[in-house]
Amino acid sequence: MLSLILLMILSLIAFLITDELIHKLKNLFINAGLYGIDLCKTDKNKIPEALGVVSGCVFLITCFLFIPIAFGNGLMDTQHFPHNEFAEFLAALLSICCMLLLGFADDVLDLRWRYKLVLPTVASLPLLVVYYVNFNSTTFIIPIPFRSWFGVSVNIGFLYYIYMGMLAVFCTNAINILAGINGIEVGQSFVIALSIVVFDIIELQGDQYKAHTFSLHIMIPYLATTLGLLKHNWYPSRVFVGDTFCYVSGMTFAVVGILSHFSKTVLLFFLPQIINFIYSVPQLFHFIPCPRHRLPKFSAETNLLHASRSIIIKKDMNVFTKVMLQILTLLRLVDFTEDNESITINNMTLINLFLIKLGPMSEVMLTKKILLFQILCSCVAFVIRYPLATYFYDK
């Protein structure tokens, strides 16, 4: 308990340092050519990009400084030093550090999407190696209604490692594609991190005390530095976070989910991102034309955001695209107009879906409503994890 109190003090200092560093380093990023223009504003001021590298660095340094506190007793008594726990912590930080480096490289070099899938896989390798050495548990517990067919548990072997690698890829990119308005990337990450912290605190009284303590050791400094970044990224944004922040955040969530053995619960906290990914699939896989940027369209006259749109040329449509459009129209998930030669539909993101269902709104109001949806989904996740889980599992 003392170590957690000291960690919170360290994290408070990390928040203040993150806040101050971002304020002081903004112009340095602009001078280096790392800046962008906010397309949802009337002014065209230069806004520094990739400031997620600042919060990521402070987060990692805070975790490094915490190592002597977390493992201080073991250092005094080398015979009882917790080597396995120490290896997990270092592997977690190594994977996050790799993602920080690769994410910043993406911000600077603007890598293609195929690399965005490869990079998290490479960065998760230290994590998977330590999991293999320390646990190598590849068994899934089968829900009670299906045990008559599959038994109590199923060992899926190497497929479990593929699942964990895919979890890292999904977490990093799921945050990255739910983006485009001020505060949304950092805001959703903050809510997910806070949900994980609450879950850890609830579970501290259980038999997985060490696993959830490990998770808190990672999540508390992450939460503090993310809050420091959110202060500058909130509407009207003074900085952009870049892919660096999305990559670091996704890997951090994957790390605690895998090494603390609650990856399925982490996915429950990603319900809005899962919905956004499934809704985006037709465009992400180019069944429907997908522009480079799918952020909402800003109206300078009304200062409101409208759903952005893509054009489908009818003569280029195949049968699969036609069927997909019919299904989406039947489910009322797209808003489209058509003429003799083309069909115009909204870009398929959760942000645009909110705009076609709730109507045009200001950017800050849209961010608040999506974050409220994120919070509601976290509440649903806790209901699934606790009351409903008893119907499917013994505990």
Results as ranks from 00 to 15, higher is better:
Val248Ile: 11
Ser249Gly: 00
Gly250Leu: 02
Gly250His: 04
Phe253Asn: 00
Phe253Ser: 06
Ala254Cys: 07
Val255Asn: 08
Val256Gly: 12
Ile258Met: 05
Leu259Met: 10
Ser260Pro: 12
His261Gln: 10
His261Tyr: 10
His261Cys: 02
Phe262Ser: 01
Phe262Ile: 03
Ser263Thr: 11
Ser263Val: 02
Lys264Phe: 15
Thr265Pro: 03
Val266Cys: 12
Leu267His: 00
Leu267Tyr: 03
Leu268Val: 09
Phe269His: 12
Phe270Thr: 01
Leu271Cys: 02
Gln273His: 13
Phe277Lys: 02
Ile278Cys: 07
Ser280Gly: 09
Gln283Glu: 12
Phe285Trp: 10
Phe285Cys: 06
Phe285Arg: 01
Phe285His: 09
His286Tyr: 14
Phe287Asp: 12
Ile288Asn: 07
Cys290Lys: 14
Cys290Leu: 03
Cys290Phe: 11
Pro291Gln: 01
Pro291Ala: 00
His293Leu: 09
His293Gly: 01
Leu295Val: 01
Phe298Glu: 05
Ser299Lys: 10
Ser299Phe: 09
Ala300Cys: 10
Thr302His: 11
Thr302Val: 07
Asn303Pro: 00
Leu304Thr: 10
Leu304Arg: 14
Leu305Val: 00
His306Met: 11
His306Phe: 15
Ser308His: 06
Ser308Ile: 03
Arg309His: 13
Ser310Ala: 14
Ser310Lys: 11
Ile311Asp: 11
Ile312Cys: 12
Ile313Ser: 13
Ile313Met: 14
Ile313Tyr: 14
Lys314Tyr: 03
Lys314Glu: 05
Met317Thr: 14
Met317Cys: 14
Met317Ala: 15
Asn318His: 11
Val319Asn: 15
